[in-house]
Design a protein around this nucleic acid. Sequence first.
DNA 1: CTCCGGCAACTGGTCATACCACTCCGACAG
DNA 2: CTGTCGGAGTGGTATGACCAGTTGCCGGAG
Lengths: 259, 259
Amino acid sequence: MPIDAPPRPRASAASQAADTLRARILAGAYRAGESLPGERDLADELGVSRLTLRAALAHLEAEGLVLPVHGSGTRVLDFREVGGLDLLGHLARLALTSGSSAEGLSLFASLLELRRSVAVEAVALATERASRDELRAMRAHVASMHGALGDAAAFMAADLGFARRLVRATKNLAFELLFNSVARTLAQNPGVELAFHANAEASVAVYARLLDRMEARDPERARATAARLVARLDRTTLDALGLARAVDEAGRGAAGAAT
Amino acid sequence: MPIDAPPRPRASAASQAADTLRARILAGAYRAGESLPGERDLADELGVSRLTLRAALAHLEAEGLVLPVHGSGTRVLDFREVGGLDLLGHLARLALTSGSSAEGLSLFASLLELRRSVAVEAVALATERASRDELRAMRAHVASMHGALGDAAAFMAADLGFARRLVRATKNLAFELLFNSVARTLAQNPGVELAFHANAEASVAVYARLLDRMEARDPERARATAARLVARLDRTTLDALGLARAVDEAGRGAAGAAT
DNA sequence: CTCCGGCAACTGGTCATACCACTCCGACAG
DNA sequence: CTGTCGGAGTGGTATGACCAGTTGCCGGAG
């Protein structure tokens, strides 16, 4: 019984086309300011119908990569100037799969830096605004995290769950939406759960201490504590990720020649 | 002389359909977790072809509002859980045009709060990483802002321009992409330029002082100064925006009955 | 020769129709 | 009652045509 049926015919043609075009744009194959080839040509080249191609373009447009102009062409935008945060995940994924691991790591470090600055402020805000119930729920969540210490993926989910409760306690929708983007970026990069898991126990301990600060209702001290502890966590996370990537790299290097 | 020729037949059918659906989802007309009506029905209801409807759905999918499932239906997602930061602009616009001005103001306050926390950290990072050239360019930019004090729109553009230079000097792509989202959110809400303009002189003065701090290469002091000064700016901005909205509200109230 | 109007050949935007692929659920056989 | 197998309904894709803007060439008027 030969295994033939590919268990991964998943990606739709439209999203595949979108991925291809996105990769080209992010890689600079089409320069910003120029126009994309005509839809008819592009569809033909990618081997899809014009309709499918247009669906892909609609996604890219929503991501801020491209701007179709009726009668003229479809302009390629400078993603550094107009792209949203969601691009970071794609950039990191591209760098990690098809290029320098160092660049992907750097992007990941950027994301952690942003996350940290927001998290610290979120702690301060939550210290002022979290209800007693919310604090209690966070306590319970942290306690439950001990049960997920064994499984990396489960722990990352629990970790993000705590972060979401924290962010929600700030009563600030902008923070919450930003958190969504960050969480999605992390989720779509396989391997990061290992980095999360690398300092799982330390994270749980840190969260418990942050809750102490928050319950004391002293925003400034809470902020200072958060800044210190989260920075330390992030350092460990980055080290773990770097190590994992290095091992991965070495493994690939042993299998094939270094490119 | 009846004005008939609409100078704004601009919006394409697809984007109109997307706006309609987005508004419905954000307003809760379709509850999260449920499925949208079938594409055929929906297209018929909105008076567009199924193809156009699909283009609209592609946008909503990219925005994280909706998830089409092949064979099943198109699920409505909880935007508070998966929506990106770009939604904030739409929410604010909806609140301001068709509903409570207070809610829109609150959303705007959320955005300012986020922007401030990020800006403060950006100042700290830029203090460490900005090159001498970048600092000089920022100086020049601040100087040039004096020329835009008269025009609200021009000043807002100049203000965002300074912010972009600052963010770029952090050498952190995540910060830069987040800035893009924030800037776009501000840009798509008409009227905010007045709020920016309300404390134009103060802003320029603050930026100059921040540059002093950055040139001194002391991240901690720079951060503290930024936190203090920017918070003050934001308070003024919010007051100005609230006042403008109140006046606007009163004007509308005088013309029609309060809804 | 210069300038301006208009036509033609692009481009993206929309439409109608048909068919494929997948999911779900209910009817039927066991 | 259980398991299976269809069919109905859903989103996904293809085709071909036409509409609607934009651009630029080209010929005629000055």
